[in-house]
């Protein structure tokens, strides 16, 4: 297969775009498209300070690499979760993230969950009985809280995450199966800033996971290849596999599923946000927004694991 833009051999075929690209043109195409999506969805301006949530995985490190290549002021935030799983998962992902930042002279903030709360993610999950047998629910809550806290405390204009189209399509698929109205209203490339909440953006939301893996490989980005040990058998991976089967039979199905959803919502398929979203209150502990007066879910959970709580 030849590159669409030159006569070189293609290194990637993207059937959903009816296009193959060589290494050089693929490395140009991904940042160009990212810049287009940032502009199209009004994610941020060149003058704004961006905090990139980095996990050591292919998507977030690639996002950081792309934003820096595009000339944005982008610093990283790594949240150490204290997950081992026999793979030294957290320590290895932290090492790779720190090496990435050091190699490019980038600023990285590191937050250690155990230092902040007195317990690692698996310990928090075990002590609070949050989630079934997995700490994923506690992990999501802690990460959302910490990302928002750091973005606001350190004066960043926007928080960027490395969610790709497969992540977004899997979440959309899950929410559609149960018609989770409020979640469907909120999902999108940009979650605007609101009192107590930093603006959140997903600049990679239109790239397939396969394209992001390819970008990390051709860019020589060293990322953590092993999965989080708790993600084995997860619902999101199951949904991604189903969507990939669909994609295999009908190229472009994943992209169309996500883009048609965004378009349908834009045209008013769902109720306006004001009619569905509950009123938010400031948490009496941390001050971040919460749906009910008093302590937020994060503070209630962390109160149970702090050493002084016994």
């Amino acid at each position: 297969m030849k590159c669409r833009k030159c006569t070189q051999k293609a290194v990637i075929n993207m059937p959903q775009h009816h296009m193959g690209l060589c290494r050089e043109h693929f490395l140009e195409w991904i940042p160009e498209q990212t810049a287009r999506f940032i502009k199209k969805y009004g994610m941020f301006k060149p003058s704004e300070k961006i905090l990139v949530a980095v996990s050591g995985g292919k998507d977030s490190l690639s996002l950081w690499d792309i934003l820096v290549r595009l000339g944005y002021q982008a610093d990283g935030l790594y949240i150490s979760l204290g997950i081992d799983g026999g793979l030294a998962y957290s320590s290895e992902s932290q090492r790779l993230t720190e090496a990435f930042a050091a190699g490019r002279g980038l600023k990285l903030h590191v937050v250690d969950v155990k230092q902040e709360t007195g317990a690692s993610i698996p310990e928090i999950a075990a002590k609070t009985h949050r989630g079934q047998e997995k700490p994923c629910s506690a992990c999501g809550l802690v990460k959302r809280h910490e990302m928002n806290r750091i973005a606001r405390d350190l004066g960043y204009d926007v928080l960027a995450t490395g969610h790709n189209l497969d992540d977004e399509a899997a979440v959309l698929f899950g929410n559609t199966l149960i018609w989770a109205g409020e979640y469907l209203l909120r999902q999108g490339p940009v979650l605007p800033e609101s009192p107590g909440l930093a603006r959140k953006v997903k600049p990679l939301c239109r790239f397939y996971e396969r394209e992001m893996t390819a970008y990390a490989l051709v860019s020589g980005i060293e990322y953590i290849y092993d999965e989080c040990p708790y993600s084995v058998g997860s619902t999101s991976i199951y949904y991604k596999e189903i969507l990939n089967r669909l994609e295999n039979d009908r190229p472009g199905a994943k992209l169309s599923f996500y883009l048609s959803f965004l378009e349908a919502r834009e045209k008013g398929l769902f109720a306006p946000v004001e009619q569905v979203r509950a009123e938010l209150h400031a948490c009496s502990g941390c001050g971040q927004p919460t749906s009910a007066p008093g302590l937020c879910s994060y503070c209630r959970m962390v109160d149970k694991v702090r050493p002084e709580a016994g």
Binding site: G57, K58, D59, C136, C139, D166, D167, A170, E209, R210, M212, T213, L217, Y225, E227, C228, Y230, S231, S234, S236, I237, K240, E241, N244
Partner: peptide, 8 residues
């Protein structure tokens, strides 16, 4: 073959 699926 490099697996591309990640997430949890």
């Amino acid at each position: 073959l490099v697996s591309v699926i990640s997430g949890g």
